[in-house]
Design a protein around this nucleic acid. Structure first.
Length: 623
DNA sequence: TCAAGATGCGCG
DNA sequence: AAAGCGCGCATCTTGA
């Protein structure tokens, strides 16, 4: 049975008086801020406010908090600030966190601020802090004890502080969190954003569970790929050094001097003849620019060819492979990362690596080529990846109520990249599609080259070569209804300085303005935010919530483990015996369950078909 | 010497 | 004058 709150799907549950407010202090023996994944950290103190209005405290580790666990079991929901932390510790203490519904006051503040947490540098909006202390300060409430706060901020272990200091702080945090909850509940309700908060909070226990898992590398594969990369990289480095006389190609400055001064390459220019430069007016040296440079003389072509290869290898080594090798050598190939719920403007997740002596790697930008280095951490299990195919395009079709997108989605002969490629290269669509499908190399080239341009106009991209601009105009023409809706969003933002989406999520653009030539400084962000938000901050989280809870309520939790999620996808470790069950469940969760939830919680009639695809194998991304 | 900014690049 | 959006990490440069 799914827990009651998931059967009822009613955010009004937060108006119940039957809740518990919790704050933990942790002995941070590991040297971080007390992550529950590290065994040397330990729960130190729990303080909680009970539904009866009692403030209880217990100095004990996570295995000796029975009274708290009993109080939580009879509560409708748990209130905490950054509740993923408390949930992680509850899980480690053996508490079944799938029975818990959080009201997270950090998420509450995040929802109230919309996109303002991350700020918007293009329009001069600075980020806003949502720490408990900042939330209190904004409301004119008393701040945290500065002494304890500074100590903790500098990584002093609470276990070595005077008990009274720690206890007083923990009690005060519970009181502040409680007051913050009451305050936010009122504002969220009046502004019709309680459903959005509800969706955010439903996801948190899922993330706490995912974060406790981590991901597993295959030591043998890592070793082979690492050695191979290093060998090739060193060889190429030597060839390059003999050409350049030993410049540091990692330095954009030195590389630029070599390319443009020594080799005499011409900079890429816009149509007016002005060179395309970096923000500070330096000459560009990125891969895209180098590709466009081409190279005319043999010397130019030789260098560009070698450098293109070498920079890819060097990047792979410094960003991924060196870390992977060390993880295999020192932590059995297993590593963790944080999934952050309150970082992005659009409320999608972000990920941060956990620092180590050999760098850190986050979970959402692992090079696709290295997925095959990951396997299940459990002997004999498989790795499955499920993703929502073409998700943002479908969501744009829904929000723009665009008949052409609907038509394209149901047309078996629609290929988005062939479409953009055909327009840019002035080729007949049918003919190009058939050539591509027949395996024609040139057709595939055209399609691949078109990929980066296919969705650029979806978010306002309009400038480029004449070929590109022809397609960007073509896109707006093809998806007229969507373009019109996006224009209306921008008009509204210019007048109201905010955008309220049909499901209540609200974005703020306090510095929105149009310049003399009609350019709106936040226009492209306005085009993007509702689409990215609905797709990756609502729909996929909803799917994850149902997937996770269904797995738990059907007794599959010890044979299916969620281990990662990357915007439109989820990665699980799975026992081979339940592959068919998983496939059925996940398809239902990524489609039907989403429609039902959007209808019941947001009153949205999501009438565009969602797509779902699963890949299962011994390694991540391999069949 | 150190921190912040700039650049480039991986992902969706 | 030109301008797709959202992130985080490694490396180099800059400036105090």
């Amino acid at each position: 049975m799914l827990p009651n709150f998931l059967q009822n799907l009613n955010p009004e549950i937060y108006h119940s008086d039957n809740y518990t407010v919790v704050d933990f202090e942790v002995a941070t023996n590991h040297g971080d801020f007390g992550r529950p994944i590290f065994p040397d950290n330990q729960l130190l103190l729990a303080v909680w406010w009970t539904p009866e209005g009692l403030v209880k405290r217990k100095w004990a580790d996570e295995l000796h908090q029975q009274e708290l666990y009993e109080d939580l079991s009879r509560s409708d929901f748990i209130v905490a600030h950054n509740s993923i932390y408390e949930l992680g510790w509850l899980k480690r203490g053996g508490f079944e966190i799938s029975r818990l519904l959080p009201f997270d006051t950090q998420l509450g503040e995040y929802v109230l601020l919309g996109n303002l947490v991350s700020g918007h540098s293009d329009s001069g909006v600075p980020p806003t802090s949502i720490s408990l202390d900042s939330c209190a300060a904004r409301r004119g409430w008393s701040r945290k004890d500065p002494v304890v706060d500074i100590l903790m901020g500098h990584g002093v272990n609470p276990a070595s502080m005077p008990r009274k200091w720690v206890e007083d702080r923990c009690i005060q945090d519970v009181e502040t969190t409680h007051a913050l909850f009451r305050d936010q509940l009122d504002v969220l309700t009046r502004s019709n954003r309680l459903p959005v908060l509800y969706t955010r909070c439903l996801l948190t226990p899922v993330l706490a569970d995912i974060q406790s898992e981590g991901m597993q590398l295959d030591e043998e594969r890592v070793g082979i790929v690492y050695e191979d990369h290093v060998r090739q990289s060193v060889a190429l480095e030597q060839e390059i050094a003999s050409l350049t006389g030993g410049i540091n190609t990692n330095s954009p400055k030195q590389l630029g001097e070599y390319l443009y001064d020594t080799l005499g390459l011409d900079e890429i220019r816009d149509r007016r003849g002005n060179p395309k430069r970096t923000d500070t007016g330096q000459r560009k040296t990125d891969a895209k620019t180098l590709l466009a440079l081409g190279g005319k003389s043999p010397a130019q072509r030789e260098f560009l060819g070698l450098y293109r290869e070498q920079s890819k290898l060097a990047d792979a080594i410094s960003k991924s492979l060196r870390f992977f090798k060390e993880v295999c050598a020192t932590q059995n190939g297993h590593f963790w990362a944080d999934l952050n719920q309150t970082r992005t403007a659009t409320h999608r997740l972000s990920s941060t690596g956990i620092p180590s002596d050999y760098g850190s790697v986050q979970f959402q930008n692992l090079a696709k080529a290295f997925k095959r280095l990951f396997k299940a951490s459990r002997e004999g299990w498989l790795v499955a990846e499920t993703d929502g195919s073409g998700l943002e395009f479908r969501v744009a079709g829904f929000l723009g109520d665009d008949p052409q997108i609907r038509k394209d989605l149901t047309d078996p002969d629609f290929d988005p990249h062939v479409t953009s490629g055909a327009v840019m290269r002035k080729r007949d669509y049918r003919e190009l599609l058939e050539a591509y499908r027949a395996g024609d190399k040139d057709a595939k080239k055209i399609r691949d080259a078109a990929k980066p341009d296919t969705f650029k106009p979806l978010y306002g991209g309009s400038k480029g070569t004449s070929e590109q601009e022809r397609w960007y105009k073509g896109f707006k023409e093809r998806y007229k209804a969507l373009a019109e809706v996006q224009k209306q969003w921008v008009s509204r933002v210019l007048i109201e300085k905010k955008l309220v989406t049909p499901w209540g999520m609200t974005f703020f653009f306090p510095n929105a303005r149009m310049n003399a030539s009609g350019y709106v400084n936040v226009g492209n962000a306005v085009y993007n935010y509702p689409v990215q938000c609905l797709a990756t901050a609502e729909i996929i989280p909803i799917a994850l919530v149902f997937l996770w809870h269904t797995i738990h309520s059907t007794g599959l939790a010890d044979r299916i483990k969620l281990v990662n999620t990357v915007h439109d996808s989820v990665v699980v470790e799975i026992h081979p015996s339940v592959v068919d069950e998983y496939t059925k469940i996940v398809e239902d969760c990524f489609t039907t369950k989403v429609y039902e939830y959007l209808k019941r919680v947001y009153a949205l009639d999501f009438n565009v078909k969602l797509g779902v695809e699963t890949t299962i194998g011994q390694y991540w991304g391999e069949e």
